[in-house]
Design a protein around this nucleic acid. Sequence first.
DNA 1: CCGAGCGCGTGACACCTGTCATGCCGATCG
DNA 2: CGATCGGCATGACAGGTGTCACGCGCTCGG
Lengths: 201, 201
Amino acid sequence: MIRVLLADDEHLIRGAVAALLGLEADLEVVAEVGRGDEVAAAVARHDPDVAVLDIEMPGLDGLTAAEELNASGARCAVCILTSFGRPGYLRRAMAAGVRGFVAKDAPTQELAAAIRKIHGGGRYLDAELAAGAMAAGDNPLTEREREILRLTGTGTETARVAALLHLSEGTVRNYLSAAMAKLGESNRVGAFQTAREMGWI
Amino acid sequence: MIRVLLADDEHLIRGAVAALLGLEADLEVVAEVGRGDEVAAAVARHDPDVAVLDIEMPGLDGLTAAEELNASGARCAVCILTSFGRPGYLRRAMAAGVRGFVAKDAPTQELAAAIRKIHGGGRYLDAELAAGAMAAGDNPLTEREREILRLTGTGTETARVAALLHLSEGTVRNYLSAAMAKLGESNRVGAFQTAREMGWI
DNA sequence: CCGAGCGCGTGACACCTGTCATGCCGATCG
DNA sequence: CGATCGGCATGACAGGTGTCACGCGCTCGG
């Protein structure tokens, strides 16, 4: 019996996935959490064999939670289950020691297959996503660029961003310009969108 | 036995929701589709009692599909199941004759409860979402404003937007200015984000 | 009927943005 | 060690952006 922990902020979906896994004779969902920052405690308490983590979650995102588990030397294998097969996500997941990466639009049986595979010590990657990640290459943005892109991407005015980061307005514009050049976009809106699309923010 | 049609573009999630509903003795999933433009044909063929539609789908979004069903006088009741409880979505759904609206982060049992309720001729609305929709009020944007906001929101340069719509650049900027005023934002990025947040685009 | 209101469309002006040249500092490497 | 490269930071300039006043046509309600 493979003991599974499920982390996803959408309660109904979490229950649905639990129902799906419940149909498998060799899988048992032993814990469910709805926030990233509850993952570590739940793993400690229930000692699952496999943790299935969504990425977009309140508190702490699934990738950071996976990094945390890895750093603390947790025994359980981690499988990411996400809507967004963004290249940057896959990279970060691999770097965090994640062994499985499944998209929410993968075939129905794929999650159970991934869980079995990684529980056996193997890895499970969606071929499409892996190819996409290879093609996209590494994240070219620096930390400052990401930070400024994040802020301006939510509609924050340049002046406010500058104030928040204790920078001159010109400097903020310059980071945006650098990000735009790296991303091949001609304005901040496009730069933000493609950076997000790539999972680089 | 209530016959249910399921429409969601995320294959694995669709299967999971089907598994969830399969646990209910009085519900039967008779058809699944992954695209909005396949909903009408599937309804015609399988004659379900209730159609559960996601909003974000390729081909045709769930709200438009619901409008289509309503216009064609289909017998089946429609329940929207979505990640995003945006006020504008709920409004459009109500206008389309949708009788149920459930968020993907609602409690696990809520979907089955909603299906039973609307199959019995009632309505089922998430109280939180309904309150939010009331508070937000109507969509203040005109069609032109929405169109231009959509385009600039994906990074398209003003000049290109103007060319696409056969307008002067000044006119494009003016529509954006109007949208910004209506949304209480001071730049196009913020305007796009809040318009999307509200489900007004 | 006819003014009021609204959506559409435009150009001119002030201001914000994107670009460029420049400098500083720490890390890497022959 | 000195050279080189990459990240951080800034100001000046040109061009794009947000605002405003204005005009056109349509649709209501008085």
